[in-house]
């Protein structure tokens, strides 16, 4: 079974470009309905399928995503 992961998104720095959405293998991310203080719809987690692969963070042009993944023997 794939290890569980999680992401933390700095929503104030997110510009809602959706590049991370396209990179996520499990459709974990979507754009929010609300906007941040710059008026951008920001990326957010919409399910708990994250496997911590970091693809979203790697393609994020604004470096707003931090990724965690549980250790193998947990």
């Amino acid at each position: 079974m794939a290890r569980k992961g999680d992401v933390v998104i700095n929503i104030e720095k997110c510009k809602g470009c959706e590049v991370c959405l396209a990179a996520c293998p499990n459709e974990v991310l979507a754009l929010s309905k609300e906007v941040n203080s710059k008026g951008y719809h920001f990326a957010m987690k919409v399910n708990s399928e994250c496997i911590g692969c970091a693809n979203c963070a790697i393609v994020c042009p604004d470096a707003v995503i931090t990724v965690y993944r549980e250790k193998r023997n947990n």
């Binding site: 569980k4 992961g5 911590g52 790697i58 931090t66 965690y68």
Partner: peptide, 17 residues
């Protein structure tokens, strides 16, 4: 394992340099 416990420093796999 709950998601809250995943988000701790030892599980960090990617952050901005």
């Amino acid at each position: 394992m709950s998601e809250n416990t995943i988000k701790n420093p030892e599980n960090l796999v990617y952050e901005k340099t």
